[in-house]
Amino acid sequence: MTLSPRTALLSHWAKQPWLWSFFGALGVYGLVLVFARGHGAWNVLTTALAFSAFTVLVGIGQMFVITLGPGNIDLSLPATIGFASAVAMKVMDGADSRIVLGLAAAVGAGWAIGTLNYLLIRLLRIPPLIATLSSSFVIRSVGISYGRGLQIVPPPGFAYLTTARIGGISLLALLVLAFSAIAALLVKRTVYGRSVLAIGQNMRAARLAGIPVGRVRWLTYTLCGGLGGLCGAFLAGFTGGSSLDVGAEYLLTSIAVVVIGGTSVAGGMANVPGLWGGALMLFMTSTLLNASGLGVGARDLFTGLIIITVITLAGGMRQARQG
């Protein structure tokens, strides 16, 4: 109360955990520019935005799941992305007229996988980690037999849409930005968002506060699956065809951006803007390591070290604030 407005503002900003992820991204961006001697600054940024769009899209879903509380995590995302990309391409069948249908099918497939995950968790009382892991293998197997011999290219219109740029900025990035805004509203201002946060803090208390815990969890897993499905379809358009392994890297990155972005892994606290900071930072990092010409081993090593460093720093911040 005795704080001056300026320090109050400062302490308000210092409490925004997502800020650090943007600082990190900015720092690595600076290093990239140093490496490139200042060339292609705009190009690197727009490319980063374009690629981050996919990461953020799945990151939103993973964030809601992780916010449900300890043990909640969707490990089936890569399988979902791969499967949905195959579904989208098959339904679109190379025809521009079927783009919407294909997108709906991909989201529907993701939604169904989310439902399956939730049913496993609920009916078999399996920890989400085991449930989503087990289901991911089933999905993979289904995906393999479904996508057998699939070499369908995306409809030209869809390929165009997923790679189009407006003023240099990818259309998809703008779309995902809009999605992020909706997700942020969902967290802060809706009954659903509050319910997710409450469940993440104390499931039993949430139930006794009258929150329909089962329905909220189900919705959350289907939300995550649906966004994964959408991401799969977009990736198929972006990369020019579906592939089962297209989602492989999104398991780690979806978890990493959620954590780097300041969402609590213990649940009950979500942060949407941080997803962008985390995604940009990860992309900049791999750009930097590519530019420096190190081998695959060194790149993996550095990526791992950076994740641990970031999480150590972020965890430290959180601790300092609580203390």
């Binding site: 201002r189 803090q201 009950g268």
Partner: peptide, 27 residues
């Protein structure tokens, strides 16, 4: 059974009444 430890006092009080605090879609 009761407290949501990450939340403010106000958020803890209103959690049971969110339905009636809505204006359209939003709280």
């Amino acid at each position: 059974d009761g407290v949501f430890p990450l939340w403010s006092i106000a958020e803890n009080i209103t959690i049971c009444s969110l339905g009636q605090l809505r204006k359209g879609l939003f709280i």
